[in-house]
Nucleic acid binder design. Structure first.
Lengths: 197, 197
DNA sequence: CGCATTATTAACCATATGGTTAAACCAAAT
DNA sequence: ATTTGGTTTAACCATATGGTTAATAATGCG
């Protein structure tokens, strides 16, 4: 059972850490965002480090299970990949900072790897196995399942995670224009990855 | 004319900022890395902010011109894209933090956009125009030049910028294994983007 | 109620941090 | 040799920051 205060702290911490990372975040700022006294942060989470780790762990623990169940749907592979893309873009719509946060957290804190692995089950291996299967069936172009998945997630995630640069240099920082491009990504990725002309 | 000291500061600052970002970097750490007194940092660059901006500006000013001249080579498009990929992987080999640094810098400091745009010439537009041209000629599959370029840079950059996560969850953090995968990327990207079966 | 446990606050603390200063150093010009 | 200008250093400063504490308030329970 978690107290209301603890929940408020957690939410505030999530918001601040997501946007600023552990280095850019200030405990006082988190306290202010939560509307409580700074001492409460330490009362509930001891240190900034522990609070941060809790947020990182939650992010990873939420992300992977949320993606994996799509693999279990009984759908043709094209629809399954489409659902995967939809789900991802949906998550990102709710929290645009998530992808960069996850990457940056591991860049700056590689020691969190262990923490994080525990929270993701067998997601990756299942996906790769599933793709290998479809390749054997001939429903998707035969190649390396690893590269296939890497291509998929790259084309899906990079336009999000690299948005500040890509939007700036290719689209004159036009937010609306770039949102339009993102909406087209699903069809574009499917066509590319399935090598449809 | 820049003094030897200024150069040492700049190199040290580049190394530290690249790895830790502006928030994670300490002026003392930069001074130590440069082997000089902390006061010299302020003597030559006034503030941490200004020093950081100088490093960011250099990164962008180096990156784009270095990539663009490939577009000017008189090569078949497949070779040109291949050279583009080679060049990028080569840069990253020399500085693995560069892609993440550039993205993170703009995430945390969107106000640097102006600073940065000045340093990149017409790189993006030229590339898009070039691709549109090839599509008309029929040398690459017809689709949106914007998406084509986005697909290319995504498949190229994401495995680098997302390395901490991808390597961890798909490849058990096996560095050698992942290096092997990266070596295969060039052929894989070309095949995918050109829709070769 | 009365007591014990938990939650909350304001004030405080030690240290880290970006930045400053005044004095010393040094090379070139006079 | 003295002056002059830029360069370098050690010491210093103000403030920010993560974290603590002791006292107070609220809550639950016998």
């Amino acid at each position: 059972m978690v107290s209301e205060t603890e929940k408020k702290i957690f939410e505030a911490a999530r918001s601040v850490f997501m946007q600023k990372g552990i280095d850019g975040a200030r405990m006082q700022e988190i306290a202010d965002a939560a509307g409580i006294n700074k001492a409460m942060l330490h009362y509930y989470f001891r240190t900034k480090e522990k609070l941060f780790v809790a947020i990182v762990a939650e992010a990873f623990a939420d992300f992977f299970p949320n993606m994996i169940d799509i693999a279990l749907l009984d759908l043709p592979i094209r629809d399954k990949i489409g659902a995967f893309i939809d789900r991802y873009l949906d998550m990102v719509g709710k929290n645009p900072f998530l992808p960069h946060f996850m990457i940056h957290a591991l860049y700056r804190n590689p020691e969190l790897a262990g923490e994080v692995v525990a929270n993701m089950g067998h997601f990756p291996k299942q996906i790769i196995g599933l793709i290998a299967n479809e390749m054997e069936k001939g429903t998707i172009p035969k190649s390396s399942p690893q590269h296939f998945v890497l291509n998929l997630v790259s084309m899906l995630i990079f336009p999000i995670v690299g948005r500040p640069i890509v939007q700036l240099i290719y689209f004159d920082n036009d937010v609306e224009l770039y949102n339009g491009i993102l909406k087209e990504r699903k069809e574009e990725i499917l066509k590319t990855i399935l090598k449809e002309q």
